[in-house]
Structures are given as C-alpha cells and as structure tokens.
Write a protein that binds this DNA or RNA. Sequence first.
DNA 1: GAACCGTGGGG
DNA 2: TCCCCAAGGTT
Length: 378
Amino acid sequence: MALHDQTRKTASGDSSKAASGDSRHIASRLLGWYDAHHRDLPWRIAPREMARGMRPDPYRVWLSEVMLQQTTVEAVRSYFRAFVQKWPDVEALAAARAEDVMKAWAGLGYYSRARNLKACADLVARQGGRFPDTQTALRELPGIGAYTAAAIAAIAFDQPAAVVDGNVERVVSRLFSIATPLSEAKGDIRAYVERMVPATRPGDFAQAMMDLGATICTPRRPRCMLCPLREDCSATVSSDPERFPVRLPRGEKPLRRGAAFVAVRDDGAILLRKRADKGLLGGMTEVPTTGWTARIDGATTDAAAPFPGNWRPTGRIGHVFTHFALELDVFKAMTDAAAPAGHFWSLAHEISGEALPTVMKKVIEAAIPGATKKQRAH
DNA sequence: GAACCGTGGGG
DNA sequence: TCCCCAAGGTT
C-alpha cells in the first residue's frame, strides 16, 4: 500500500523535523506527555500505577471499550459505574438476565452493543471466565471488531497492537497532512500507526493517542500550542490542521412521521410492549406506535391504536437518529382495559427503570410530564 | 463498500 | 438552530 511521501522526504535530506515520520521519537514524546497529562478514567490504570506493576482488569477494559464505541467519555462514565456495581465481573454479567442488561443500557444508544455484550459475556464465562489475550481471538467475539480487539489486546494484555479509532485517524491525518478522503486513507493511516507502536507500553501509547485526540488534537480548534507533537506535525507547520481529516459530504437525512399512543390506567400505569430483537432500537421497550412512514389521518390512527378509545392529541415530539429524523404525534387515552396480547402495563414507579430508549421517554413525557423521571422517596 | 444502528454535547 | 461527530460493529 502506498505510504505517503514522508520516507522520501526524509531520505532526500529534509532537515526539518516536521513530518519527518520519526516513529520512535513520536511514541516516546507522546508517552512523556501522557505521563503528565493523561485523563483519570474509572477503567484506566494510570502510568504511575502501571509502573508499580498494576494491570487493568480485562473485564473492565472490554466493558469500557464497548461502551465507548461511537460514544463520548462523559456519556459513558455513569453507565460504566452502574454496570460494574451491578455486575463486577464477567461471570456476574453472564448470570444476569438479558432484560436487565437492556434496562441498564437504556439511553446509551446503539442497542445492539448491549445484546452483543451479553452474548459475549455468556461465551467468555462458559469458556472459563477469561478473555482471550490475542487480537485474532478477541476479534471473533460478538461486538468486538478490529478496533476493540486491538484496544483490549494492547491495554489489557500489553500487546503491540495498532489501535486505530477516530481520534487516531484525526491525529495521524494531521501529522502527515493526508489529503485523501478518510474512507480511502484508512489503510495508510493504519500503516503509519503500526510503525509508531512502541515495543514497551503499547497500551499506554494507544491511550495516549486517544487522549491527545480528545483533549488537544480536537476536531475543531485544536490546541496545537499545547501539543507534544507540534514539531512533528506537518499540519501545524504548513497548513490548517482543521482541514484534516478530509471527509466526504454526507447525504440528507429523510424525515419520517408516525403516531404514538400513550394509554394510561387509573393507577397511572402505562401500556408498553417490547420491540423485535433486531433492527432499530432492537430489544428495547416502546409505547404502541404506527409505522414511522405513516400519514397522520383518522384512518391510520384508528387502525394502529392498541385498542379503540378516546385518543386525544397531546403533542408532537421530534428525534434524530443516525440516518433519519422522526416526528411522532402523541395521542393519549385513559382506560382500564386489560393489556392486549404482546403488551403489558408498567406501573408508575417502574417506568423510569424500563428499557425505554430516549425517543420513547420523549413520547411519554409529552403525554405525562415527569412520568419517566426517577421518583424520589419521601 | 455502503447502509444501518442512538444519543448528547460543543461550536 | 443547525451541523458536526464521538474509544465502531454488523450485514
């Protein structure tokens, strides 16, 4: 695969350090920065503790890495705390009910991660409770792809794996001013990283790259003046770092519409049902809705309501998913009917604990303000 | 390779 | 308000 021209540049006598591609130099400088400026994270063993021989718990590394897929550190913190408190090790998670795992994951998004997490825990527990320590073996577990396998191998098992995530892609594409679109440049970026990975402290190197991307080499307004790789970076020297990485323009998000039905019993219980295990919001709980392309007219509404009743409009909510936006007209009715097949009544004090994705909490809040908030005992 | 799959925060 | 996009994986 075609590496960029940094090798040639160096060989042809470019005396400046910029874009010199001195991989060893970059790694050691980055590790020095990491020792002083690393973030303190609940799943991380700090450099000083690593030096005293402490090692991260593979279970916690795995759990955090899955939670962190396409998700910010701040969003993950409270979920990670709750998970390790409920399920301290992989055997505990394997013993848990899948339904409870979905409930604990509710709100974090990308719910297939939760299903794969549970499936992975079941597998690992069945095989003795130890995670595999190689990239290849890790890669075969559900929910673990190229990135996560490399991250676990490096961080938990001290292996010199090339860990390439969005942060690393951004840092490297700036270091070498990679002008080809990111989708095409991934191979080159990986090759650069493979050369940079140090023989010692590969896990800290991986985390250092990601910390650098998250705190210094940010997508917008990078803090180049604070960057330990400033003198190695072609983007700060010769151009505008915000230009990299180059991304292709994305398409328009279509708008879908539908109606949602909040049936309320006299005691405040709400009628819910479980979604199919696969696809959008798979395995999560919802209130009954029409299809999400439906026209909002009387016929559609009556046909899709869970039962005939005095459905009254009570607002409209909007929600944006990865590849479409959704508007739901919310209808509400009081009833004392029995739950139709496939549905169940959730008592008022249970609603906050249900496996409700955010869009469904919005729907319920539109009909009954405060219904999804945790009740304070008094 | 491309589509699908959530949510929240920053600018 | 709107746009960007984050420690990606699966099909």
